[in-house]
Write a protein that binds this DNA or RNA. Structure first.
Lengths: 143, 143
DNA sequence: AACACATGCTGAGCATACTCACTATGTGGA
DNA sequence: TCCACATAGTGAGTATGCTCAGCATGTGTT
């Protein structure tokens, strides 16, 4: 019982830490019209040599296809990406960064790096390895 | 640069771990018509001697007042809680568990304990303390 | 008593995620 | 060739969170 009680608290702290970290990063990204979800998509588009299909973007960012539709809608409204018909597959769209999207990505990436470095400043290399190992053990247990 | 790159990965792992853990727990709670958000509210109502004001429930669960309104709407639709007018403050409602809510809470609490114990089964007491300390250091850096 | 301000809750609207159902299109086998 | 099945994207609906605006009510001050 005492052991179970202690995992409750531990997991609460894990949730709380992740939540606060997210707020911390979101607050900085918002200044440049970005967000964690947006940055993930912009990053994949920037890394890719060629425009990406919606499907590929979904898989690379790790969210459901439907979520990508909404996200790309919003990025497109803001002029950061554009959808182009796939030249060979008429079902598909290709998504690519606009010049404004390239700029937004670059700035957001910089802010993200700064924020994450700041958030983990209290951890040295050994701490990071230790944390990584502990998190990996939880992931193993949760499939 | 290498250091910043490594915090990226570390934080991604933190997000990923929390996300998967959430799915793991949600899947179990769903069987009983509960969820993480619902359980948090049911738990506070169960712990309290007296019915709680919406405001108090918000503070105890750590979410915005508006979020509590929607959550209580949903719990009320499912017959797990009920709103009663506050006898002295006509602006306020008191929220209390119904008998069905008491049962749902008890079952969800049990499933939650099991799931969390399972998720953290790979960690001994020392690991937990270490993880807790590392998380605390991130929280310190993020305000 | 009356006004100013604070508090309690909810409507409206947004962001991020999900599932399920559907349309349009591609593809492989009979 | 044509039918069955798979795949690409999105509409509809839901859950969980947020902010801002607004109404009703409480409270304290003059």
């Amino acid at each position: 019982m005492a052991v179970q009680g202690s995992s409750d608290i531990l997991i609460d702290e894990l949730y709380e830490t992740t939540y606060r970290l997210r707020l911390f990063v979101e607050a900085r990204l918002r200044e440049k019209g970005a967000s964690v979800a947006r940055l993930r998509a912009l990053r994949m588009l920037a890394r890719s040599e060629k425009p990406l299909r919606m499907r590929d973007l979904s898989e690379m960012t790790g969210v459901a296809a439907r979520t990508t539709t909404s996200l790309v809608d919003s990025l497109e409204r803001d002029g950061l990406v554009e959808r182009v018909r796939h030249p060979e597959d008429r079902r598909a769209f290709l998504v690519r960064l606009t010049p404004a999207g390239v700029v937004c990505h670059r700035e957001a990436e910089e802010l993200d790096r700064e924020a994450l470095a700041e958030a983990t400043a209290g951890l040295d290399a050994e701490d990071r390895e230790r944390l990584r190992a502990l998190l990996a053990r939880i992931r193993e247990a949760t499939g």
